[in-house]
Nucleic acid binder design. Structure first.
Lengths: 193, 193, 193, 193
DNA sequence: GATGAATGAGACTTCATTCAT
DNA sequence: GATGAATGAAGTCTCATTCAT
């Protein structure tokens, strides 16, 4: 069981993302997903309490990416630069690898959903990583200390969300990576020492 | 005819907003709207091709507010301050007067809709007003000139959207006005001369 | 006016029938008709109180055909044979010249319409012609006299409607003309002297 | 479960027919039906792909009646007489028990519908019963053998449809039972031995 | 853990028809 | 006579979600 066939849950997740890429989030129905993953309505709702919940699995993908990036970064790099670096790398990756309408759906859904707002979940690798860098930056005197670590983290993440949201709103008619490279330093200017 | 009864379209809009305030966007059905406005499905879909389209009429409300604000502002006020002032006033008004779930719905909808993205419509009073102030500011030497007028306008509006979006994402658990008063100067710091 | 351009009413009729042939009765909307005839909703409803009424203009076409047939028939022909002849000629013509779904629509509509039931209108050329032949037949002793003229006319027309209806019900998968040639004599057998 | 509540589908059918009797076919809306049967649009369209489809359930009612009649008929009765007997009984029953506009709607709908034409479905009890009697009649020498069993069955059913259709076309202004009693022998005369 | 028939809610469509101008 | 914006009525579709087995 455990070895020979993928778990039902992971079959659902794979199928869902495959379909999301092909047909977009709203264009994909739960029926499509269970058909491709060869399961049933019952199983789907056994593992996920709602279709939206699948979108949250996107943050897992993103967090894996942050994990990788963390490895790659030189620890001695200037902390402020680290933030800009992370931002540029991630936004470039999103632009290349993730369908824009998925991002749009994710942001759209989180705005109106009642439940867990994954984008803001403080336990994500993302938040832990940013927090760590800000802390380190303040200690090293490379990031301004007139705001708390969590205040800066929150501000930074708001700026990132702003860049992604606007890119989605504009239907991707410019480069997310490049626009972020240009704007992020402006938005963070105050915190550079 | 002309005097005695409001046009059908405006009856629909009024009814819709009344209901949106009472029951929220998702809580309001098209049937509710046509019942309160005493019209019919046919008429509703004759004027609006989709329920979402009603949300766009929110920008009319906002633009009316910008009109008012423009009157109130002292022309000699520092241009950079004008931007911060507008931001604070508007966000305070939104916080007080507009149901958060309407803003959330508006932003959510615009992210995934195919059609006109009202939030970005350059012809809105909003854009024309910001553009005018930025222009004036550069002329007067109160706003930095290392970016074009339209670039700054766009950046400024992105920052505003970020603040509103994040407030919605956080379900309004802090003051939008106050948070904007604190963050907007940071975000705009680069453009202050 | 009178000479140079066709009357609005006849433009509507032509357009309607052209469209009925192309798209069927139900497939043709009043909007289609007014577009092709280059008139307006108002005009359409000025001339026809309902879309169904257009179908009635079909009986004019049929009656023209009966007029023709009457000319062609030898007056001395046996009256009973005349009835069979008329039946065969008409049903063959229908099969060739008239779209089956128009006949189906005509019959279908008349079954449920409140208004005038053209199919039964005793003033039609059709009824006048059949009545004349039956009368003549009884006088000549070629048609059985144990039923009144109007009784036989009515019976005869019911049989014709039966053949057409059934042909429509079967979606025309056999020859209306041939099936009528075979069945009509059976149905009328009693009246042959 | 099994005992306590009727299936949703049959609740819909019952409600529909109750309403059809009260308000006629066109006078009954799908909303009425789901309200009375205490179900939902979703369920309705899960079981029936269109409102018209409900009319087809009429043949079930008719077939039940044929079942009954078959029991009542003396097996030794002359086969030709059996056909006339069946015809008279059924048409009398229709006249008494079934709203004329339902029959009209059924015939009207079947003329223009794309789908299954219930009226012609050879598997109905009706066709099986008529076929059996014709077969038996030919064997016994009570029904003429110059046409095939299926040819005669088809002809017979066409005659019955003719009588019902015309009755509907005339809005029931005479007795269907009596008119059938008078005409059916004329129409079938050829097959009497 | 799995299943899928059944449900509920509401958006949206379609058109013939009306009516003030 | 003509116009077409506006209407009304009902049918149909779409799906996420639930629940008895």
């Amino acid at each position: 069981m455990s070895e020979e066939k993928k778990s039902v849950k992971s079959r659902i997740v794979s199928a869902a993302w495959q379909l999301f890429y092909e047909k977009g989030y709203n264009g994909t129905t739960v029926d499509d997903i269970i058909e491709l993953s060869d399961t049933s309505k019952g199983s789907f709702y056994y593992y996920f309490s709602t279709k939206d919940e699948l979108l949250n699995t996107l943050s897992v993908i993103l967090d894996d990416f942050y994990e990788e990036l963390e490895q790659k970064m030189e620890p001695e790099m200037n902390s402020f630069e680290k933030l800009l670096y992370l931002n540029y790398e991630t936004h470039s990756m999103m632009e290349e690898k993730i369908r824009i309408d998925l991002l749009a759906s994710l942001y759209s859904t989180q705005l109106v959903s009642q439940g867990n707002r994954n984008l803001l979940d403080q336990n994500r690798k993302y938040y832990r990583l940013i927090t760590k860098i800000v802390e380190e930056g303040q200690k090293r005197g490379q990031i301004c200390s007139d705001m708390t670590v969590s205040g800066i983290t929150r501000y930074y993440s708001m700026c990132e969300r702003a860049l992604v949201s606007d890119w989605c709103l504009n239907k991707g008619d410019y480069s997310l990576g490049e626009y972020s490279r240009k704007c992020m330093p402006l938005m963070m200017e105050h915190f550079r020492v």
